[in-house]
């Protein structure tokens, strides 16, 4: 039996390295150094290396006192936990170097878990009673509605071509066979991870930090951990579906790491090269370009499967 139960642990630590890589690429495009891999001698009293900086950030938050606003309801505390559980469970279904819980409808389960994670985040934010969180929540819901169609259609294009709903069975180097689905899914991942053109729900200069405005301490640490796992899950999903060459053993790991590395590199480049959409512009664009791409992808898949 495959050790799929190791997936969440791999996800968390891989996610930290991916997060570091993301920060580094982002910083280099901005002309900065970013978190240093080797810190110079003179600063060794701080640390020798900053590769684990995302982990330190989370540990710092967990060591802090949590302040709960008086206006907050009980869902304010419960939602981050549920969101974390959703992300945690999603790790079992996403193939890590080809290893995942074998289940014939894993794609559908994954859809629900990913959506559930976002929904719990929205519920927690709105339960905080902050106005900025409410505005962020409304924006997040709008984005979710506009984004879910291209996300689902993009992945279903592959499901149609393989006639299955199990992620493991539809893995392959599909960026060549169905590039439209790849682009649609990539854009959907940008929205789901709040990357730059679509970080509308946590736009810092407009609504402080949107849904997470009132979160602090351990709850924010939990949300940050969720975010890191989500980064890994979505990136691993993309790498598995589109950048995967069937292999076993060490070769599989190599291909997998190269795939997620390339995906994060692309995400970081897009994140640093674009400014933020306004919410109306974003929904209009999402319902235009990615939706069209995903419909083309579905048509392409249908043609490949049934006509050719």
């Amino acid at each position: 039996m495959d050790p799929f139960w190791l997936n969440p642990i791999i996800a968390f630590f891989c996610g930290i390295f991916l997060s570091f890589f993301f920060r580094k690429v982002n910083a280099r495009i901005q002309g900065r150094r970013g978190p240093l891999i080797i810190v110079p001698q003179s600063l060794h009293d701080i640390n020798h290396s900053k590769v684990l900086q995302p982990l330190y950030d989370i540990l710092k938050l967990f060591s802090k006192k949590t302040i709960i606003p008086t206006a907050a309801r009980s869902l304010f505390i419960l939602s981050p936990v549920f969101a974390f559980l959703c992300a945690f469970t999603a790790c079992f279904f996403v193939p890590v170097a080809g290893i995942a819980y074998v289940y014939p409808f894993s794609l559908v389960i994954l859809f629900y878990l990913l959506m559930g994670e976002l929904l719990f985040e929205i519920v927690g934010g709105i339960a905080s009673g902050s106005l900025f969180s409410v505005i962020g929540g409304v924006r997040e819901v709008e984005l979710l509605l506009a984004n879910e169609l291209p996300f689902i259609l993009g992945t279903f294009a592959l499901a149609i071509s393989y006639n299955t709903l199990s992620i493991q069975e539809m893995m392959g180097f599909h960026i060549l066979t169905n590039p439209f689905a790849a682009i649609a899914l990539f854009l959907a991942i940008l929205v789901k991870l709040h990357m730059k053109p679509f970080d509308i729900s946590e736009a810092e200069s407009e609504i402080v930090s949107g849904l997470t405005t009132e979160y602090n301490g351990k709850l924010l640490g939990l949300l940050d951990a969720t975010k890191i796992i989500m980064l890994f899950v979505l990136v691993a999903l993309f790498a598995g579906l589109f950048l995967w060459v069937p292999a076993t053993g060490l070769a599989a790991w190599f291909i997998f790491l190269a795939g997620i590395g390339a995906t994060v590199l692309m995400l970081a480049i897009v994140h640093s090269l674009f400014s933020r959409f306004r919410i109306d512009q974003a929904t209009r664009w999402l319902l235009k370009v990615p939706l069209a791409l995903s419909i083309i992808a579905v048509i392409l898949a249908v043609v490949q499967r049934y006509v050719l």
């Binding site: 690429v25 910083a27 280099r28 495009i29 901005q30 002309g31 900065r32 150094r33 110079p40 003179s42 480049i269 640093s272 090269l273």
Partner: peptide, 20 residues
């Protein structure tokens, strides 16, 4: 223009070495 921005990926960072 995007390419010239991306070229910073392999350029030397603009931040000054050391403290001063």
């Amino acid at each position: 223009a995007f390419g010239s921005l991306l070229s910073w990926l392999y350029k030397k960072p603009a931040t000054v070495d050391g403290l001063f």
